[in-house]
């Protein structure tokens, strides 16, 4: 009995020390990991959407919680006006998991600037065709006032032949953004104003 207690004690002490060490490392690196992820995973998509270097855009990040999901939102502000919003959403129902997309839109006329794929694990040559510009350009110019759907479901988006699942995941992601923007558009714009006016005021006075 004493022996077993000894064994358990030693293992317990080793485990708790390791847990403490890991918790410490994790908390001290969490911020950096998030920055790196943003830069390498979201950066390229953001750069293509707004045609600007990602470094400046990534710092302008908002997270909008809706239900149990959170949507990362990035924005572009030129001459006191918000000229671009980029919303990221994970489209469910892809052939092998979620397709994470980023939709860029111009909040002045609510037209879509374009859609970019942030990450996916679809089959190369089939589902991976969602990356093709010829497929994605169907989004450009859409107005996001109502949900989109595939032509086979009576909508306006032509699916990729043989990759209906992947196409549907894209549509799902888009509709999440549509819904999110319908409910939170004003809130997001206000938040951006607040942030940048804070910066502008202090800049002006200085």
């Amino acid at each position: 009995m004493r022996e077993i207690a000894h064994l358990v004690l030693v293992l317990g002490v080793i485990c708790s020390l390791s847990a403490a060490a890991l918790a410490y490392v994790r908390t001290s690196l969490a911020g950096r990991i998030e920055m790196q992820e943003d830069f390498y995973v979201r950066g390229p998509a953001l750069e293509r959407l707004f045609k600007q270097p990602a470094e400046g855009l990534l710092t302008e990040k908002l997270t909008v919680p809706v239900g149990d999901q959170t949507y990362p939102v990035f924005y572009l502000r030129e001459a006191g006006e918000v000229t671009g919003l980029a919303v990221e959403a994970a489209g469910h129902g892809g052939y092998s998991g979620d397709i994470v997309i980023m939709i860029g839109l111009d909040p002045r006329d609510d037209r879509v600037l374009g859609v970019e794929i942030v990450s996916h694990s679809e089959t190369p040559g089939v589902g991976a065709k969602v990356e093709l510009a010829s497929f994605r350009q169907q989004w450009t110019g859409l107005t996001l006032d109502q949900p989109v759907s595939l032509t086979s479901d009576g909508g306006g988006i032509d699916a990729i032949t043989g990759a209906t699942f992947s196409s549907r995941a894209m549509v799902d992601g888009t509709n999440q953004v549509v819904e999110m923007l319908r409910d939170h558009r004003q809130e997001i714009l206000l938040l951006i104003e607040e942030r940048s006016s804070g910066g502008a005021v202090s800049g002006g006075e200085g």
């Binding site: 060490a21 950096r32 990991i33």
Partner: peptide
């Protein structure tokens, strides 16, 4: 346990 702890640290550090 010791090895796995170190591996997780490496994993996090590499990501960062």
């Amino acid at each position: 346990v010791v090895i796995a702890t170190l591996v997780v640290i490496v994993e996090l550090a590499m990501k960062a």
